[in-house]
Computed example of a mutant assay.
Amino acid sequence: MRALVLDQKSSFGISISEVNLPALAPGEVRVKVKSAALNHRDEWCRQGKYPGIKDGIILGSDGAGIVEEIGEGVDEDWLGRAVIINPAHFWGDDQAVQSGDFQILGMPSNGTLAEYIHIEASRLVDKPSHMSFEEAAALPLAGVTAYRALFYHGNITAGKKVLISGFGGGVAQFACQFALAVGADVYVTSSSAAKLEKAVDLGAKGGFNYRAENWVEEALVRSDGFDIIIDSAMGAGVNDLLKLLSPAGKLIFYGATLGNPEAIDARRIFWNQLTLQGTTMGSDIDFSNMIDFVSLHHIIPIIDQVTDLNGAEEAFLKMNKGEQMGKLVLNLD
């Protein structure tokens, strides 16, 4: 079968290769991958910046397809079903935090950017009926990350004021859609006027260009402070975000693409009773709740581009430059 594998010997860091999968193990199924989506972790693997990377591993954490074959011990009812793959492995029994064995599909284990995948049946859920395979493939990793940030950590409810930074990326996109679905007052940041306009079209009350000199002051005037901020950048900008939190507010971050802050305004944190909460991916409970939520509210992922394996390099370059508005999807059918 054709698959997109990590190949650090190639000039681009990935290559399309013919790969033979082993026989199905007990508890596994063979899924014909219809569509898969890219995430930033795939790009970090391509650049050699992800821990434990290994050449020849099939990349990709997001995928949707049809179960074509089952292994020993798997219920025959799975045969022929349209499914989404849960990319979280070995979360463990503690809902509060992942276990030390936690892994994400696509590195170090073979992922979804291939014509087929062998995966434990426990990692499958039925594809929401209102979504196409392309839309369903865009959902898993970013969707569960956004859901856990907002609902498990943020306890979001109608009327809360939420700021989502970096609108345009997958997690930020879903965080915006989920927050709007529960009736929150949503604002976003981006350096792109087009992305800010898209957020407003979706229902956001406003957006701020974080490259503008006075954006923090403008955001305070327009919002009077936020109950929840969802961020993936951290870095030096974290103190600006702390200024924007209302008393008892929460800054929930799922990444640190700008690195660690050199200094942090500890006095503001303790005096205003603020919470800085890290989060990553989500448990099986989070994933199941997220699927129920998007089905109930008929949420449709925003897709920037659909291509095939031959267009993978172009899609990676687009993500590297931050030009996408929504998810980048590859059809593998």
Rank of each mutant, 00 (worst) to 15 (best):
P301G: 10
S190G: 11
E213F: 09
G282T: 07
M290F: 02
N209R: 04
G207P: 02
T257H: 05
G80F: 05
V294Y: 07
F226H: 08
R123D: 00
L4R: 02
Q277K: 12
T145S: 14
N260K: 14
R148H: 11
M1I: 05
L79S: 09
V74P: 10
S288P: 01
E217T: 13
H130V: 01
A82K: 14
L38M: 14
K54L: 11
P108T: 13
S191K: 10
A194Q: 13
E28I: 03
M319K: 02
Q95Y: 12
F133E: 02
G27E: 07
L180M: 12
V162W: 06
Y254A: 00
R123F: 05
N272C: 09
K127M: 13
T257M: 14
Y152L: 08
R211Q: 13
N239M: 03
S132M: 00
S35W: 00
G56Q: 08
G311S: 06
A175N: 08
I156R: 07
N39S: 13
A236F: 04
D55E: 12
L38R: 10
L244Y: 07
L242V: 12
A219W: 06
A96L: 13
D304L: 07
V33I: 15
R30A: 11
A64D: 03
A137Y: 03
G106F: 12
G311A: 01
Y254D: 10
T112D: 06
G65T: 06
I104N: 08
G259D: 08
H298G: 08
D240M: 05
L309S: 04
G249L: 02
R81F: 01
N110V: 01
K161C: 01
I299H: 07
P87V: 04
F133G: 01
L24N: 09
V186A: 10
S122F: 04
N20R: 12
S223E: 09
R46Q: 14
V19Q: 10
S190K: 00
A184S: 15
S99Y: 09
L258F: 04
G63M: 02
Q273T: 11
W271Y: 14
L4H: 02
E68V: 10
V31I: 11
W91H: 03
S223T: 13
V74Y: 00
K318R: 15
D42L: 05
L317M: 13
D185R: 14
L317E: 15
D227H: 13
C176M: 15
A114G: 13
A23Q: 13
N209G: 01
I156V: 15
V216M: 05
K321E: 14
A194F: 03
M325S: 12
A121W: 00
H297T: 05
D101H: 12
G154E: 05
G73W: 04
G80I: 07
A137P: 08
E323H: 11
Y254Q: 08
L24C: 09
L139G: 02
D240R: 05
G111Y: 09
V97S: 11
N260Q: 13
T112M: 14
E197F: 00
M319E: 02
